[in-house]
Design a binder for these strands. Structure first.
Lengths: 344, 344
DNA sequence: TTTAGAAAATAAATCGGTTAAGCAATGAAG
DNA sequence: CTTCATTGCTTAACCGATTTATTTTCTAAA
């Protein structure tokens, strides 16, 4: 077990001061007028012995950590997992590491996580914020920390965010159902005051209103345990026999919804048409495949990291804030075609 | 922007030395015979002003970081995502934080990640190791770092690991197919020398051999891009028209396989029975639902973190190594029933 | 009245870096 | 022959904790 070399070891070996070594390794040789000859000697030696600076010590002194804190709702949710994956990749390429955590939409847990990130001196924050976290984020921003929100934003918090056009997405998808001739369309979603969930609900309602149809909304409490999602959906679907279509507000609700549909032996789309927010393998492979609103995952991740890197690289506080709203794509599949229903 | 308090600020405010404060905050008051009265005064004050020690400084001095490095193959894979999630939860409850990364099964990337973890002074490592990383891990262990492997192990590396009984799992599942009357059973998997993949292949072959059937194996190169998995499977299935069953070696291969099956309009199980390793929503919701080998995800995560925490808490090097092999469960569903085929 | 020993608290070194300030040597200008 | 600026590098303070070694204070025995 060879002990790691420190900058002092390097300095001693070369009979120079550690300051000189530090300057050279940080590319400040020119600025500090260190002779080219010495620079080369140091670089060569450092390379030979494989010295790497202790980043803890570095962070302690400089206050910078080259770490970005990423907080998603649940890392095991495919939407967040793929976003996290893409952000991770791009961050690495730019010399940043990612620490990520799941908030579970739990305000208290999120506060603790922010505390931990702050404590670990992360350089910037990327979050899909839960409700009730406004103050904590504001205080973060006031302390000069770059914060980028995604998936949702906090109306009271003044910072950059990347979102999709939730209202239009559900509005458009609902209209698609209406155009197909469906008249009793339910919207099943998590009970939430978050911007994206409110917008999705609104979009649905707007489309129905324009067509003089009656909204039927079922709100479910967010819960880690699937049973507590499947249960309410089951009784909801059992109760509303007159529905001819159902719109699931998130991929998680959608997946649980499909399980319920299977267990009740409901035929899609003849008994019930289905649309879900978010797209992923489950919806592609269900029979018939489920029409879904696909979020531009790469684009979201790209924008998030780009905005954050910009903030990190320009210490100016007075750059103006960005609110980026991306478009989704309605991927129409067999689960919502009235024709298909007609065929049976 | 209020500056964070340091231990010196606390000490000055109370007109005592920072040493005393440090002893008290680290629970060494008794040992250091600090008066109960002072202890209370300090604790009360610290609580009031909400002081929290700077963990960077702490880590720099103590060499401990209370961070565990977790490296999985791909965090967007549902199997790894849920394991990561569970480990994260249990780690938090025990005062540890997790940094996680995806290796992509890329040796070079993994080496860099190990380097970064080491650099960040993580206290322990949890990894699903890629091939060719033996030396790096051995050197980690030699340096006294606790390392726990899972999902697979490295025969040449002497450390704890948690695995499932891969060989028996595929053997048993293949036998199930044979018992159902299937005779031309293919095994589609990633080309890999990893312990778990080799064992899975072996189990399949063993079952076929015992029944005097001919193995048909298709190995696919691991690739981030799905097209490069779907392509080979498509041509494989097109070429082997005589197959009556196919066994997918991982959830990723399985998902891609189902996509191919759909696009070729192959009927399951009448044209082709399907079994996949790993279980998740896609297999539950496919029609007919896919028989799958379910890994005990909670148990794996529990064991991993328990073993690691044990190693972290007992500095003795001479505790004996554990190799934990867990059982899987074959969840039989409609995709592999010969009866179902008969009904059509 | 010393004085030894325990009790209570502290000073200073340390972890491994960065950085502000300083100093010696050299050459040019006055 | 000073004086000054520039070059090239070093000294020492600092980041915020832990920990070793040491000092001060108090009590009780000699």
């Amino acid at each position: 077990m060879k002990k790691k070399l420190s900058i002092v070891d390097i300095a001693n070996s070369l009979n120079i001061s550690k300051t000189t070594v530090s300057f050279i390794l940080n590319g400040r040789a020119q600025e500090k007028r260190i002779s080219e000859e010495l620079v080369q000697r140091v670089l060569k030696f450092v390379d030979e012995v494989g010295y790497k600076a202790n980043s803890l010590a570095k962070s302690l002194r400089t206050g910078k950590s080259n770490i970005i804190g990423l907080m998603v709702e649940d890392i095991s949710n495919p939407f967040f997992a793929s976003i996290a994956r893409l952000i991770e990749d791009r961050a690495y390429k730019n010399g940043y590491k990612i620490i990520y955590c799941s908030t579970d939409n739990d305000t208290k847990k999120t506060q603790e996580l922010i505390e931990m990130f702050r404590d670990r001196h992360v350089d910037g924050y990327i979050m899909a914020p839960p409700e009730g976290i406004e103050e904590d984020i504001t205080s973060l921003i006031k302390d000069g920390m770059p914060v980028v929100l995604f998936d949702r934003h906090l109306p009271k918090v003044n910072t950059d965010y990347i979102e999709i056009d939730n209202l239009f997405s559900t509005y458009n998808a609902t209209r698609h159902l209406v155009e197909q001739g469906y008249k009793n369309i339910a919207f099943v979603t998590f009970s939430s005051q978050q911007s994206q969930m409110k917008a999705r609900l609104e979009g649905y309602k707007k489309a129905l209103k324009e067509n003089s149809l009656k909204p039927v909304v079922k709100e479910i409490l967010f819960n880690q345990n699937e049973e507590f999602i499947i249960g309410p959906i089951t009784s909801f679907l059992k109760k509303h026999k007159d529905l001819d279509a159902v719109f699931f507000g998130t991929n998680h609700v959608g997946t649980c919804g499909l399980k319920v549909i299977n267990s009740l032996s409901i035929k899609v789309p003849s008994d019930l048409a289905v649309i879900s927010f978010d797209d992923y393998d489950v919806f592609k492979l269900f029979s018939p495949p489920v029409t879904a609103i696909a979020q531009p995952v790469e684009e979201i991740a790209d924008n998030v990291i780009t905005v954050l890197l910009n903030k990190l690289n320009s210490p100016l506080q007075h750059q103006k804030l960005q609110s980026i709203i991306l478009k989704t794509e309605l991927t129409i599949r067999g689960s919502s075609r009235m024709q298909a229903a007609a065929q049976l």
